[in-house]
Nucleic acid binder design. Sequence first.
DNA 1: CACCACCCCTGGACGC
DNA 2: TGCGTCCAGGGGTGGT
Length: 277
Amino acid sequence: MPELPEVETVRATLAPRWVGRGIESVRVARADVVRPRDAGARALGLGSRVADILRHGKQLAVVFESGLVAQVHLGMSGQLFVLAPGAAPPRADHLHLRWRLDDGCTVCFRDPRRFGGVWLFDSLDALRTQRWDALGPDALTIRAHDLRANLRASARAIKACLLDQGVLAGVGNIYADEALFAAGINPHTPARALTRDETTRLAACVRSVLRDAVSAGGSSLRDYLDAELRPGTQQTRFRVYGRAGEPCTRCARTLQGGRVAQRTTTHCPSCQPLASS
DNA sequence: CACCACCCCTGGACGC
DNA sequence: TGCGTCCAGGGGTGGT
């Protein structure tokens, strides 16, 4: 379940190990995780160096000095990590892609559920116009004005809007519930019913919930590990996610579970009342 | 156009 | 123990 904080942690731990390094070989164990499937090794950086690793929302972009770009989605269970020379990965299965670097290290892409993958682009410009332009502003720095503009007069539940990457890029199910709890907003509230103050508060809560999670190295529930194979610790600090039936940490009332936009949703009936007033 | 249901996939939890 | 079933969810697609 990598969301923005996990992807940002992967970026931050991967960059010092990969940026500036040449790519000596690329091994594709499962061709269908790469799109287009028949792209050659050069499109995956062979013979070039990594110039930069960028992130927008939950997506990463590995920019090669050749100008080519590999966009990586971690999906649900994707991992991107570095192995020192001779080191063995924690698990050898589902290792779809390996980049051998000029310092002997190997960068591995592992993704058991294969909701993730690698998309290849001719340039950063192509990635932007074909992909990133359709995403909303990055959630880590979302401003109230932009959030309000993108919610507009939508009748959808606010939680569905937060999960929509075109509205806001980077929030997934965990941090949507956490941000709504922090803001005291009921997840079912139609977006257009939010007051100006509520939207402003929500934008601030999205930023702070994500910032806190980034500083904890993200949340590790099942598969998530950073590029150094370390788990995050934010999962111990969830206030609502995965806690339906347990007491609210603020008011002790029982947290209520449900579903919004096909996603398991937990909220506090007292701290997040439906009738916003 | 806006929105929603469905589907992709695997591992882990749970019931029998 | 082992087997079947359900569930987790990011994001694309196709239907309403």
